[in-house]
Write a protein that binds this DNA or RNA. Structure first.
Lengths: 342, 342
DNA sequence: AAAGTCCTAGCAATCGATTGCCTCGCCCGA
DNA sequence: TCGGGCGAGGCAATCGATTGCTAGGACTTT
């Protein structure tokens, strides 16, 4: 509860230990040649005073702050959190602290954050966001390395770690074909979203490779459950035959599941369902739980952080680095085993 | 793409402008008495070199870093994000940057973060988490002020900004009574959760004040949709009469809504439903959309940040500060207007 | 013309910590 | 007894920026 007056400095420690400032520093950092007894005396003094070295003063010499900035281009949300946590995890292992900056989708605000981070002499910057679309670089000729995670930079020379959405969509389709479905519909988000277009195109391509085609054109709409429900209505009204739906998000898939159940179509027996994102609260609460494509967001964050650390140490990895997605299979594509079967 | 060699310093600026370092500093900070022409020359030089003052070096004098630490006790999640964003917002206005530290529920890790933050000389610390339960303080006699947001400290002298969950629960019950419901059931999370107990007790108390009682005992379980569905089964099986359910979370409420619909009970006509958290993706995607108690998490974060700033400036606000919840009314408690009614 | 004012800008100490270099004293050998 | 060698620890420069004090030049005033 009480609040100490001020931070003890190394002079305080030195005085208490009865040595000079330089000696105290050497004692605490294991440098120089000192008697073990002296080191111990200094360590005790430091402990007694609750001394914590002033990181700012130290970086004045070392030139490094062991600090990185993390900028979210839009709002901190469902997609940026896992990325952020993965990065925090990887950076924490390297003793680095993270400055969090929320761009709120405002370029002015974002530039302000970049300036602030540079002023604080971060060793590097990670940029992330909630859409996978490429965006303009946060700056040119910045004095520190930058890595884009989840989103990517329009400059091909920048380092971007992104999910292989195309591969993810292909895996979804392959899984549906593997369980014998041939009339696969696709319901997804707004067409102006990069992710929606990429996933739809990849799904069509994979089907074409197998000599198949989508059941009807991709239905572009919103990322919401309500759109999923509406789209099912449209699909049924159009008379399109389908035995599976690949959805652009878990929310859409959930809406689809609810709408199908409401009209008496069984999932997965009549219609198999695959979602995207593997957002657990959605995928697992769905009836039935959803098979879904996982973009491994925290792995993305971790990789981005590792690449940033490497770049800080002089080993940059320029270019775009897609990382594989994987499929998490749940009951929406697999008929459960008969209960009670001994 | 290119990467500059090193950060320009104020000496570089001074040299380019043809003045001494001290003069350059005064020019850039509007101090001292200098000719306007000199100031302009220095400003130009700074702009030319892309000079950003070294914040670490500066704080060596000022003693302030304009930096705060934010520690999440458990994982960064649905509850801590809005708090975090509110805080980031309020702090950003004060030109302060935020160090984000994820405690992962590990006390060792948490203590490590506290030490790191102190070493970085943050001006203050905000602690948050995903449960409202009081927790042990992160430290005693820390040299900087600490504010707890959402969660609270067990030390009553610490500053904690918390949601008035009790008040929220009362509002939910009052709303249900106001629309004429008298047999209100309560389905909520695990009994060992502080929030579950507090909300249940407040609901019972408010009903008692109106001469009523809960329909059956509170049903403690989990915060999940599945539990909501199961609980409805239990409620129906027990033969308890009820015309409303107050749920401990939106996820539970959603499960309840689905289960009721499955057995042909209409929401809100037969059973009105109120959730808790006002988690929009859940509340709005529910069929029907859920009336829910909003804890105003980002307001909590903002308030916490403001109190921290005040404490940093010597005006601490010790003690527990409950902040009101409010009810967001949606279709689960209101019969929609007849469509087409001119 | 000498002295007093005011304006401008430079000098140097300071913040906290690190580190290369130097000194002091002890021990050993010649 | 004197000098070399070495171990231990102090001194002071350094990192980048800030700021109080001071010096010098221009201008005014008596």
């Amino acid at each position: 509860m009480g609040k100490l007056e001020r931070h003890p400095t190394i002079s305080d420690v030195a005085a208490l230990a009865g040595v000079s400032v330089g000696t105290a520093s050497k004692a605490l950092n294991g440098r120089g040649s000192l008697r073990e007894e002296t080191r111990a005396r200094v360590r005790d003094a430091a402990r007694q005073l609750n001394f914590e070295v002033n990181a700012g003063a130290r970086s004045l010499h070392s030139g490094r702050t062991y600090t990185v900035g993390m900028i979210t281009t839009d709002t901190i949300g469902r997609f940026s959190i896992p990325v952020l946590m993965g990065a925090e995890d990887a950076l924490g292992a390297g003793q680095m602290s993270v400055f969090l900056c929320d761009g709120r989708g405002d370029p002015i605000r974002e530039q302000y954050h970049v300036k602030t981070l540079l002023s604080r002499r971060v060793d590097g910057i990670i940029v992330t966001g909630r859409r996978t679309e490429a965006r303009a670089p946060i700056g040119r000729d910045l004095p520190v390395p930058v890595v884009y995670a989840f989103i990517s930079s329009t400059d091909p020379a920048d380092c971007s770690v992104v999910p292989d959405e195309e591969g993810g969509a292909r895996k979804a389709v392959e899984h549906l074909m593997a369980i014998g479905r041939t009339r696969i519909a696709h319901i997804t988000g707004p067409e102006h979203h990069h992710s929606a277009r990429v996933r739809a195109a990849a799904a069509e391509e994979r089907l074409a490779e197998a000599g198949l085609a989508l059941a009807g054109a991709p239905l572009y709409g919103a990322w919401s459950e309500m759109w999923g429900r509406q789209a099912v209505g449209m699909l049924l009204a159009s008379g399109t035959e389908f035995d599976a739906v690949f959805c652009g998000s878990d929310q859409i898939a959930r809406g689809v599941a609810d709408a199908l159940r409401a009209v008496g179509r069984r999932v997965p027996e009549d219609v198999a369902l695959v979602g995207f994102d593997n957002w657990e609260v959605m995928a697992e609460a769905s009836q039935p739980p959803l098979t879904s494509v996982d973009m491994n967001l925290d792995g993305l964050g971790r990789t981005a952080a590792e690449m940033l650390l490497a770049a800080i140490n002089g080993k940059p990895s320029p270019g775009r680095h897609p990382r594989p997605c994987h499929l998490v299979v749940r009951e929406s594509t697999t008929v459960p085993l008969v209960p009670g079967g001994a």
